[in-house]
Amino acid sequence: MAAAQTSGLAAALREGLESGDPCALSVDRISQQSGVHKTTIYRRWMSSEGALADLLSEITAAGTPLPDSGDLEKDLRTVAQRLPSPTRRPRRSSAKSPQAPNPVLKDAAGRFWSSLVHHTAENVRRAQQRGTVDPTVTADSVVETLTGPL
């Protein structure tokens, strides 16, 4: 995603995701909110899902500083509060939803969540080094448990 031209598009996509409304991710709505003409969206990404996959590919957890208060529970709560609430995630409507998920979007989302888990696991490893968490616990599994419902 070209930063200057599509910063409004990225903001519209993020807002659409956070709204929990699947209609907020339509090309028409994204175009209207971002000021990026819908033919540009179709030409470059072919759909709002393509634009969203591109955005998810750019958002990496490794670029987000981890909290380091010395209290694992507090740090993990801080990370969890940055994530979308499970009660606000987009609801699927049988009339509007495709039968199969977009494979490009599915892959981008998988890479995003995987990077989030591996990056956040550093908090658990720090706690293990401090001796406040059992060293036999797998750091990734702790974070997967935290993010699983999301």
Rank of each mutant, 00 (worst) to 15 (best):
L25K: 06
S26R: 11
D75S: 08
A80N: 05
V36I: 08
D68A: 13
T40F: 10
E15F: 04
D71W: 05
R89H: 10
E15G: 15
L66A: 03
V79P: 03
R43Y: 08
G63W: 01
S31G: 07
E58I: 01
P22N: 10
S48C: 11
A53C: 03
E49I: 00
K38R: 15
W45V: 00
R88Q: 11
G20K: 09
D21A: 07
S69D: 02
S48H: 02
D54P: 01
T87L: 14
I59G: 05
A61R: 05
S85R: 15
L72R: 04
L13M: 08
G70W: 03
L17D: 07
G50N: 12
T64D: 09
P90I: 12
M46I: 01
T87H: 09
S34F: 08
P86V: 15
R43E: 05
T87M: 14
P90E: 05
R29G: 03
D28S: 12
S34M: 03
G50R: 08
E58D: 10
R29D: 12
Q33E: 15
L72Y: 01
Y42M: 07
E15P: 00
M46R: 15
T78L: 04
E18N: 15
L83K: 11
T64Q: 11
P65R: 04
G70T: 00
P86H: 04
S85N: 14
L83R: 13
L76A: 06
D54T: 14
T39D: 12
T39Q: 15
G50H: 10
L72G: 10
Q32C: 07
